[in-house]
Computed example of a mutant assay.
Amino acid sequence: MHKKILAASLAICSFLTAGAQSGPLHVLDIKNAAALREFFHYTGKDIPFISGHRGGINKGFPENSIEALDNTLRHTHATFEIDPRLTKDSVIVLMHDATLDRTTTGKGKVGDYTLAELKQLKLKDIDGNVTEYRIPTLEEMIRWAKGKTVLILDKKDVPFQMTADIIRRNKAEGHVMVTVHSAKEAKWYHERNREIVFEAFVKTQKALEEYEAEKIPWSHIMAYVGPDNKPELKPLYENLNKRGVMCMISTAPTYDKLPDAAERTKAYRSIIEKGASLIEADRSIEAAEAIKPLLPKSSAKSKFFKLAKK
């Protein structure tokens, strides 16, 4: 049953993403885990970029949908933070909330429904408008994303072992990362799969020291330093950068909520100017447009940023 649902939904997604938007995809040409580590290695001459929070949240394209990621990639290169959750029959689907009410035509808890039942629902966009798009499984998303982008799995209700298994089963270490909130969580994954790259919470010098104490290789870490572009981050940036670590600020709970577009543009640019290498934003397309003037004229990292052939 699951294989039939997967095949049908992949066919639907292929049709929708081919027809819903025009223009080539901005793809990240990252072929394996070693290339992914190189992509995230801080050099001081890197290309700043956007990570779409919950897959990027833009009008008409529901969060955590394949169509939302595809839409963003029609405008800019990006990685994407997404939210895995378990169904009643233990399939991993993508849904930020534990409940269905806000983002789908369903009601109640995600975990009270089977995959087949969830596939009957339609997704809503940021304005609450019902779309024709359906809830994807994580496996569908992983297969779609290969050769296009990098997925960053947030920590929800999926057991660590299931997350590790789906990455290994799909040989996805080159385009799927795992969010870890502590050095001990990173150690759990690293002991089981030395190829996995992390979006790691490193908000303080103490946290940095904990990752070093657990001997997590800095080559495997991109650091999330928090939601605020504050001056106090400067020494943390310096300590992480000299270890070859890129730093990321998430604007979803802060600057994305500014009501004025000009103020948001100023905020996005300031984040990069003050030392972050990338921005995780709800407004993925808008944030990418804002930082365009800050892109270097040349960079060794240019080899990763490609346009897909039509």
Rank of each mutant, 00 (worst) to 15 (best):
T99C: 11
F201A: 13
K301T: 12
R283M: 11
Y224A: 12
I285Y: 01
E81M: 06
R243H: 10
T179C: 10
G44H: 04
L6N: 10
E286W: 04
T105L: 10
I152N: 03
K148F: 06
L36Y: 02
W188A: 13
A68D: 03
D46A: 09
S9L: 11
A288D: 10
T265Q: 10
I291K: 02
K203T: 05
K107F: 13
R192K: 08
I271R: 02
Y211H: 05
N64T: 02
A35C: 08
T105W: 04
H190M: 12
I47T: 06
L138W: 00
P253S: 03
K266S: 15
D157F: 03
R85V: 14
F49I: 03
G244T: 05
R269V: 09
M222C: 09
T149I: 07
A164K: 03
L208F: 08
K155W: 05
P136K: 02
K187D: 14
I291M: 08
S270V: 01
R194H: 14
H41N: 07
N229A: 15
Y42F: 11
A172K: 00
K310C: 05
Y189I: 05
T103Q: 04
F80W: 04
T17H: 01
I167A: 01
R102K: 15
A186R: 02
M222T: 09
Y189T: 06
P231M: 01
V27D: 02
R168I: 10
K242F: 03
E63P: 15
I92W: 00
K230I: 13
A281P: 15
I167V: 09
A261P: 13
T137H: 07
V150K: 00
A308I: 07
E199I: 06
P217G: 07
H53W: 04
V202W: 00
F201G: 07
E173T: 00
I135C: 06
F304V: 09
L86Q: 06
D125Q: 08
D256F: 13
D83P: 00
S22M: 03
P136H: 01
K234A: 13
A34M: 10
E139I: 08
E195T: 01
H41C: 10
H77C: 10
